[in-house]
């Protein structure tokens, strides 16, 4: 298989397989979570579930002051990474081309310089988080193989994507192959690792908010 054939496979069949695994796995996991069923709460409800649940989904997107005091570094680096990742994923013109081809609609891209900054910040934050995970005794004790694997699976698409945009290291074909490979690996692994939090984080937040809301408490 020459590089052109590999690239073609990754843009076609490979991507189809990865998308199938990702969507199937994620749909199954999320729906299964929802259908698990909760025991009927026999106590009289003191408040609604849906409203407070959704409110919590929104509110937990912001830093809670008591958390930031405890782990300032983790919070700042964590937010930087997630924001940078979000910006590069959804606002780079090439990614919008891709989304437009799949979903039939797109939006305006951010200028290349903004993407560059977001990608560099995101990469730097990821590296800093890895170092911190290793240095901090508590984090280190809590970390297992899956945590490092998730880190790598997230880091590689960002790194190869940045190299591709800047033409670093290899020629374009090879870099595009590496980028697609890393993205497809991420898609395949995401439903079955902690990376599934890209969706489950919202249902978890809703659940927290809903439980509190039922009791008439602010989550």
């Amino acid at each position: 298989m020459n590089p052109q054939e590999l690239l073609h496979w990754l843009r076609g069949t490979g991507l189809q397989l990865a998308a199938a695994v990702f969507v199937l796995g994620m749909t199954y996991r999320m729906l299964h979570l929802a259908l698990l069923g909760r025991k009927k709460n026999l106590a009289a409800a003191r408040g609604a579930e849906w409203g407070p649940g959704l409110r919590t989904v929104w509110r937990r997107s912001f830093v809670m002051p008591e958390l930031s005091a405890r782990g300032k570094f983790t919070v700042i680096a964590g937010y930087t990474f997630h924001l940078g990742f979000f910006v590069t994923l959804f606002f780079l013109s090439q990614h919008i081309d891709m989304l437009r081809a799949v979903f039939g609609f797109g939006w305006t891209a951010l200028p290349r310089s903004a993407i560059d900054i977001a990608a560099i910040l995101s990469l730097a934050a990821l590296i800093a988080l890895l170092v911190h995970r290793y240095i901090d005794p508590v984090k280190r004790m809590l970390s297992g193989f899956e945590d490092y694997l998730s880190w790598l699976l997230t880091f590689l698409p960002l790194l190869t994507g940045f190299m591709l945009l800047r033409g670093i290291g290899f020629d374009y074909t090879m870099l595009l192959i590496l980028h697609l490979l890393s993205v497809e690996l991420l898609m395949v692994a995401a439903p079955f690792t902690k990376l599934a939090h890209m969706f489950s984080t919202f249902s978890a937040r809703w659940y927290n908010g809903a439980v509190a809301g039922f009791k008439g408490v602010k989550a």
Binding site: L15, L35, Q94, H95, A101
Partner: peptide, 25 residues
């Protein structure tokens, strides 16, 4: 564009979503 897929991803993803939902149910 080189960034876009060369195969139909939406159809595959749609089918996968149906299968995933069916399996979950």
């Amino acid at each position: 564009p080189l960034a876009a897929p060369t195969a139909n991803i939406a159809a595959v993803a749609g089918a996968a979503a149906l299968i995933g939902a069916g399996a979950a149910v």
